[in-house]
């Protein structure tokens, strides 16, 4: 069952990557990367149980924090000109 849940999370991560590649706006890509990051946290915790090594949970905690800071860091530059390019706003 743990392995099935791991595979489900991997499938969801692939879906997030597809959305990140398709776009169409920059915000969709940031959203997809954020979702990919939170699912990575789940994947690491599940893998820790699959492999019988609960130490992985520490890595998952650190990864959750890094993911949050990276998203906020990217959005800090949301005044930059690349966020305002008009061809990205149109579908």
């Amino acid at each position: 069952m743990l392995i099935a849940a791991t595979i489900a999370i991997l499938v969801v991560m692939i879906m997030a990557i597809v959305r990140g590649i398709m776009g169409p706006t920059l915000y969709d890509r940031i959203l997809a990367v954020n979702m990919f990051g939170t699912k990575t946290v789940l994947l690491i915790s599940l893998l820790g149980f699959v492999m019988g090594r609960p130490e992985f949970l520490d890595i998952a905690i650190v990864y959750a924090l890094i993911n949050f800071i990276s998203v906020i860091g990217v959005l800090h530059y949301s005044d930059a000109s690349i966020f305002k390019r008009s061809d990205q706003q149109k579908k």
Binding site: I9, V11, V12, M15, R19, L31, A32, M35, L42
Partner: peptide, 8 residues
């Protein structure tokens, strides 16, 4: 989780 992935 898979529902969310389909939704996105």
């Amino acid at each position: 989780c898979i529902s969310g992935g389909v939704g996105i």
